[in-house]
Simulated scan of single mutants.
Amino acid sequence: MTEQQRDAGEGAPADDAAGAPKVTEGTVEALVRAQLAKALGGKRGMVEAAVPTLTFTISYIISSELRLSIYAGVAAALLLGAVRLVQRSSVQYVITSLLGIGIAALFAMRSGNAADAFLPGIYYNAIYAVVLSISVLVRWPAIGLMIGPFIGHKEDFTSWRADPAVVRLASRLTWLLVLPCVIRVLVQYPLWLADHYEWADTFALLGFSKVAMGWPLQVAAFAAMVWVLARGRTPLAADPDSREQA
């Protein structure tokens, strides 16, 4: 083998025969950053998630008409979707927002209490926090499942669990996803209880807290993840021994 051939072989990524999938990112941290950014949907995705809820809340505060407020929230989501369609861009986040306000409307219409529109979100965050926490405690952190197909052997998407550094990194990042959910439940559930049992009129606080604790909290969690990821350099290598400790 010539010197040039040896140099080319050393600089090339692990081939398929070694079982490692080809990726463009050089580290686990870079890969996770890319996946999280995609999940957030950018600034526009954040706005599209908040507008229907904000429209519903403000409409009910002004009119005290539950059905009219629901229609306003749905109309806002449909308008955002129409703009996306005209621009021929993805309607993924608009559909998610429309689905969310649709479920919220069912809860509110069933009870006749506008505050119940926020109950599905509270339930969702509570269940999400429990599921993610369990995933860490049983050493199957959710973030690890997200990046698993890109790490280790193509034939075994669970091979990342053999690397303690990757498991620790995925666990830390998963806990950072749990935190916003816990904060939302701790703030919003007492507000819902106060409105439901007529201890106080907390509907406005409940609505605005949902918006304030939606994407802003998610972005804060993402920023914390970026900070954690910036500290580590865990190579995407097939050999766990070649990875540095996260």
Score class of each variant (00 low, 15 high):
G41P: 07
T96M: 14
G42R: 13
L40Y: 12
A115V: 01
I101T: 07
I70G: 01
R84L: 03
R44E: 06
R88C: 05
L80N: 04
A114L: 01
A108C: 00
D116S: 01
A20R: 15
L40E: 11
K43L: 13
R110V: 07
I103K: 00
A30I: 03
E25P: 02
T53R: 09
L31P: 10
V28I: 15
Q92E: 15
I61W: 14
E65T: 06
A108I: 01
S89Y: 00
L66C: 00
Q92A: 11
T27N: 13
I70N: 02
T53F: 13
E29N: 10
R67Y: 09
A17I: 12
G112C: 00
S64G: 09
I62H: 12
E25W: 00
G26K: 03
L66F: 00
S64D: 08
P21E: 11
L36W: 07
E65Y: 03
L68I: 05
A30Y: 00
G41A: 11
Y93M: 14
L85V: 15
A72H: 06
A104I: 02
A108Y: 02
V28Y: 14
I61S: 14
R67G: 07
A49S: 12
G45V: 08
E48Y: 03
E29K: 05
T24R: 15
L85E: 11
L98Y: 07
A75G: 08
V83T: 09
L36M: 14
A18C: 05
V32N: 09
K43Q: 08
F107W: 01
S64W: 06
K38F: 05
E29D: 07
A37R: 13
A37S: 14
Q35N: 13
I70M: 03
S89A: 10
I101D: 06
L31V: 06
A77M: 06
